[in-house]
Simulated assay, not measured.
Amino acid sequence: MARLTQAIDRLDVLAERYRRPISFLSALLFALSCATWAGFIRWPDFELLSERQAVLISTGWNAIWWGLLNPRIMRRRAERAAATEASTPA
């Protein structure tokens, strides 16, 4: 459990450090996927990655992020904030 907590703390630090590039890339990928879905953009067919595989990878990533990592990161942030508040004198 301690290793998982350390990994979550490291991931949180990394995400905080690169917040703007990650946000920009996420918004860009969202816009591109919407444009592709609407038919404004046609991507070349890749033999290594079919549409079904892309959907499965995307679904898996979102399940891992929103179902596992993000809730734990938010919980850990709340724990650290509570520990900081408790350690500071009033």
Rank of each mutant, 00 (worst) to 15 (best):
V13A: 12
V13D: 06
A27P: 00
E85W: 01
A81I: 09
R42T: 14
F40W: 15
W61E: 08
L11S: 09
W37D: 07
G39C: 14
L25A: 13
F40G: 10
G60M: 09
A90L: 06
L11R: 01
L49V: 14
N70S: 07
R72W: 12
R19Y: 11
L69G: 00
T88L: 10
R17G: 00
R80D: 04
N70C: 10
R19F: 14
R10N: 13
E79S: 09
L69H: 00
E85D: 09
M1H: 03
T59M: 12
V13K: 01
A15I: 10
N62E: 08
S26P: 00
I73L: 11
C34N: 08
T36P: 02
V55R: 08
R80Q: 12
R75S: 10
R77Y: 06
L56G: 06
T84C: 01
S26W: 02
T36Q: 14
A27H: 00
W61H: 13
L48C: 04
R10P: 01
A90V: 07
P71F: 06
P89F: 07
W61G: 06
Y18E: 13
R80M: 11
T84V: 05
I73W: 02
W43D: 07
I22E: 01
A81H: 03
L4D: 08
L28M: 14
Q6T: 06
A82H: 02
T59A: 15
S50A: 15
D45K: 12
R3I: 11
T84N: 02
G60P: 05
L69Q: 00
R42L: 07
P89I: 11
I64C: 13
Q53F: 08
T88C: 09
E51K: 13
I57L: 15
L68I: 06
L14S: 07
P89Y: 04
A78W: 03
A38N: 08
R52M: 13
D12C: 12
I8S: 05
P44I: 06
S58A: 12
L25H: 08
P44D: 10
R75V: 04
A83S: 03
S87N: 02
E51D: 15
I64R: 02
L49Y: 03
E47K: 06
A78Q: 10
R3M: 13
L4Q: 03
T5I: 14
A54E: 10
R80P: 01
T59F: 12
R19M: 11
G39V: 11
A35H: 02
A38M: 15
W61C: 13
V55H: 05
A2C: 03
E47L: 08
I64K: 02
P21M: 12
D12V: 09
R19P: 02
R76P: 01
I57W: 02
R20P: 02
P44A: 11
F40K: 09
R52F: 11
C34A: 15
S33E: 15
A78H: 06
E85M: 11
G60W: 08
A54V: 04
L14P: 00
W65E: 15
L32C: 14
I41Y: 06
I41T: 11
R3Y: 08
R19L: 13
A7G: 04
I57M: 13
R20M: 14
A31C: 09
W43R: 11
A83E: 04
I57V: 14
W66L: 15
N62I: 13
R10H: 07
A54Y: 04
D12S: 15
F30I: 15
F30Y: 12
E79W: 05
